[in-house]
Amino acid sequence: MKNILLFIAIVFSVSNAAAQIDPLKYPTYTDIDVALLSKKTVYSMSFRNKGLYNLPPDLVRMDSLFFLNIMANHLEKMDKVIFSLKQLEILNVNENSIKFIPDEIGELKKLKTLSMNLNNLNVINSEISKLQNLKIVHFDSNNLSVFPEALLSIPSLEEINLHSNQISYVSDRLDKIKNLKYLNLSANQINDLGELKLPKYLKYLELQKNRIVKVPETIFQSKNIEYLNISDNAITQISPKIKGLENVVSMNLANNKLKELPEQLRYLKKLKTLVLVGNPMSKETIAGLKILMPDTAIYF
């Protein structure tokens, strides 16, 4: 059964890889006039860093576009023309001044990647939950104060990046995002994670640069986590249940208030890297950990 699952996963991944944009097959046009004159179908356009305050209205004629990059302009809103592009799979709106996502976002049913870093978003429109093909969302460096509830209704998501927001509350039902592998909640205002339930296949979890005092024991039930970063928090102790992270390879606990660690760390047989710098640990404690985990490189 395990092998079948693996096989399915590989087939799935290869089909995705084929869908990546090959610049030769899908040249990216950067000038709307050139694109309009093209005799070939235009699939990809980039208006990056063009100093735009609005998108060219003729973009509506590019109805085969599956890739659109409009990052690093002066856009304060998402022009309606974007939502006429029903074939869009990848949309990059980074580095603008977008304040809200219109309801029409729900019309981009084929969207797989939505990247809106470095904008002025306060909330994520719940209409986004209609995008059931979405795999990747980036909302880094906005002004979000809560984990966007709408994302809990998109089980297809594999990657969520919300670092550098103002998030203080995270839903404890993250496990609803069944396919999630990468979650980055670093540099927010989280001090209490409650009884956070993580998705089963989560691989990388980044919670650094928050105000977390206690790591919920539920996190340690995540058997598939390979990389855990909870550095730069205010954590005073780690539960012995950490032994549940049986696949963790690299763990960063730097810059916390840890004086010691549970001896159950010795059960983490795959752990190769443990970063402990910036904790109030004695040299004797570190020496003891090195004896306890001879196959782990400890950075202190």
């Binding site: 990389y227 690299s250 730097a254």
Partner: peptide
């Protein structure tokens, strides 16, 4: 900076930052 496992290679920057 640790760089021998995939988990470390995939997270170079946060490791470098923690290491000062």
């Amino acid at each position: 900076v640790p760089n021998k496992t995939q988990a470390d290679q995939n997270n170079t920057t946060s490791l470098a930052e923690s290491l000062g």
